[in-house]
Design a protein around this nucleic acid. Structure first.
Lengths: 133, 133
DNA sequence: CCTTGACCTTCCTGCGACTGGAACCCTCAT
DNA sequence: ATGAGGGTTCCAGTCGCAGGAAGGTCAAGG
C-alpha cells in the first residue's frame, strides 16, 4: 500500500504519516521507486497512533504506549498509570475551560450587544469590574 | 517603572511583556539607558491583556478587544459577538475533552493495573475493542 | 511516443504564544 | 574594582503538524 491508500483508510493525512516516520514512530519499507510501502503491521501501528492521539495522548505518550503494547511482559499498572496521569491533565484542562466559560458567559449575558458603546465585557477586562452583580 | 516591576505587579513574565511589545500590543517608552519605561497606561494595557488571555482569548482577539476598548464609538454588539464566538470555541473544546475523558476513564476503570500484561486500554488502542461492555 | 494528471519524494517554512539561553550592557553597593 | 542583580538583543526550541516548492514516477489516453 502507498501512503495515499493508508491515508484514505485511516483518515490520517499523508503529512502526518510522513511526520510519524520522521520521528521514528513507524518504519515502513520502501518500494524500488522510493515510495513508502505499508504492510498490515504499519497500518495497525498507525491506527493505534490515531486512536491514542484522538484520546489526547501526546506523541511521547504514544511512543511509550506503543512500547508497552509491544512488550509482552509489561505490567498493566504502567499503562494504567500513564492513562491516569493523562486523565488528570484532561480534567485540569476541563476545569480551566469551565472557569473561563463561567466568567465569560456571565459577561456575555450582561452585555446588551447593541449599538451603544457601554460594555461590561470591556469594563471587566479593563479592570473596572463594576459590571457583574 | 522597569519591566521587572511591571512583571511583579501583574504576574506576567518579563519575556511575555517583551513579546507583547514585539508584536505591537504595547509601545512603552525607553529611558536614556535603553530600558523600557512603563507608565500607568502601559501597565493598564498589560493588565487588560493579562485578563483577556486568562479568559482564553487569542492574541489577535486581544488586539481586536483593545482596539474596541479604545474606540469610544464602538458598538457593544461587536464585543459581544467576539466573546460569543470565543465562548463557542471554549464549549467545543470542553466537549472534545469530555468525550476523551469519558472514553479514557472507562478504559482506566476497566484496567486491573497490576503486574499482569492484560490491559483493556492497550486492547482498545490496538483496535481489539473487546474490552468495554 | 508523448503528454497529462495524479501520485509520490524531500526539504524548508510557518503556525501560537511564548520560554530558555547566550552574550552583552547598566547600576549600585561594598 | 568587583560582584550581584537588574536590563538589552537575538536566536533556537517547544508541539504536532500544514503548506508549498521542486522534482521523480506511473498509468492512461491521443
Amino acid at each position: 500500500m502507498n501512503i495515499g491508500d493508508v491515508s484514505t483508510r485511516l483518515g490520517l493525512p499523508a503529512k502526518t504519516i510522513r511526520y510519524y516516520e520522521d520521528i521514528g514512530l513507524i518504519k515502513p519499507l520502501r518500494s524500488a521507486n522510493g515510495y513508502r510501502s505499508f504492510v498490515a503491521a504499519d497500518v495497525h501501528r498507525l491506527a493505534f497512533l490515531g486512536r491514542a492521539r484522538a484520546l489526547g495522548f501526546s506523541i511521547e505518550d504514544c511512543r511509550t504506549l506503543m512500547a508497552l503494547y509491544r512488550d509482552e511482559s509489561r505490567a498493566s499498572a504502567d499503562v494504567k498509570d500513564l492513562a491516569k496521569e493523562h486523565l488528570g491533565k484532561i480534567e485540569a484542562k476541563i476545569r480551566d475551560l469551565q472557569m473561563m466559560h463561567a466568567t465569560l458567559s456571565e459577561l456575555v449575558e450582561s452585555c446588551a450587544g447593541d449599538n451603544r458603546p457601554d460594555c461590561p465585557i470591556l469594563s471587566d477586562l479593563s479592570g473596572l469590574s463594576a459590571a457583574i452583580g
